[in-house]
């Protein structure tokens, strides 16, 4: 991608200043909780509720808070759980969505339109609607409080099917025809021809999938009871169940640690992240 160099420095027109002010205000509103959280993670308990809006603590309590965060609850375990669950979900989502999207975009069969319509309807149904039936099903299968319960409900992503289908539709039919003549089987066409050609779509989808499941609290909260299986957001909640009430310093420190992987990943792959979001034409 080429960056355009402006021929002359941009003027500080009224419109431009207004635009910047509005955007900055928006950014501040989005960032405020994080900044407050970060600041709280460095403060002793007394200072957090002191009512002062100083961002930097008077007594630096960061080391204590972060040590507590890492020792009081098995935070590493939560992070590992988060990684396992996200990878598991993404793996199965791609495994199921890609062949499905290929069938919907590049093959002809009876009922194709109807199935695609069902996918579109599926997009409209949030997890909250299906949560209780799913909970009962998992309970009856004796699968509550397992990794399976965390991964299985998301293994088939209608959003993934939809996104890949739109992307595959743009792949020329002649490419598929050439692959068939060259001797690829349908199954290898999916993985060796179509998927590599749709790599940007996969990246975009991976970003959406990982961020939403890494940050998900709703579903783990329902199906997980034991501490060892908790993914990060649920793990952070354990700081609240302390006998001494809510302990905000360590909790905020834990939150910072839990958020860090995504922030680092974003900074490292900023370009791709933004390309991915623009590509799918959607925003979180």
């Amino acid at each position: 991608m080429s960056r355009s160099t402006p021929l002359r420095p941009k003027r500080w027109t009224f419109g431009r200043i207004t635009r910047l002010l509005v955007l900055s205000a928006g950014a501040m509103i989005m960032l405020a909780p994080f900044i407050w959280g970060f600041s709280a993670s460095l403060k002793p308990p007394a200072e957090i509720w002191s009512g002062s809006i100083l961002l930097w603590p008077e007594t630096f309590y960061g080391i204590e808070n972060y040590t507590q965060a890492l020792t009081r609850a098995p935070l590493w375990l939560f992070l590992i759980n988060g990684v396992l669950v996200c990878i598991g979900i993404l793996f199965f989502q791609v495994l199921f969505a890609v062949p499905c999207a290929y069938a919907l975009s590049k093959t002809r069969f009876a009922g194709r339109t109807a199935i695609f319509a069902m996918v579109l309807i599926g997009l409209l149904i949030p997890i909250h609607v299906t949560a209780i039936p799913l909970y009962i099903a998992f309970a009856n299968l004796g699968l509550l409080n397992t990794y399976t319960a965390l991964i299985a409900p998301f293994a088939i992503s209608v959003f993934g099917i939809f996104l890949f289908r739109q992307f595959f539709a743009a792949i020329p039919d002649e490419l598929i025809a050439a692959a068939r003549v060259d001797g690829f089987s349908e199954w290898t066409i999916v993985w060796r021809v179509v998927l590599p050609a749709a790599w940007p779509a996969v990246t975009a989808f991976a970003i959406f999938s990982v961020t939403s499941h890494w940050n998900d609290l709703f579903w783990p909260f329902i199906v997980i009871q034991s501490t060892e299986l908790a993914p990060p957001p649920l793990g952070v909640l354990y700081f609240r169940r302390d006998e001494s009430g809510v302990d905000f310093g360590p909790m905020m420190a834990a939150t910072m640690i839990v958020t860090a992987p995504l922030v680092v990943a974003f900074l490292l792959a900023q370009r791709r992240f933004i390309d991915g979001i623009t590509l799918s034409g959607l925003k979180g």
Partner: peptide, 8 residues
């Protein structure tokens, strides 16, 4: 093919 259809 007209569009060459090479594997990109």
């Amino acid at each position: 093919f007209q569009s060459y259809a090479l594997y990109p």
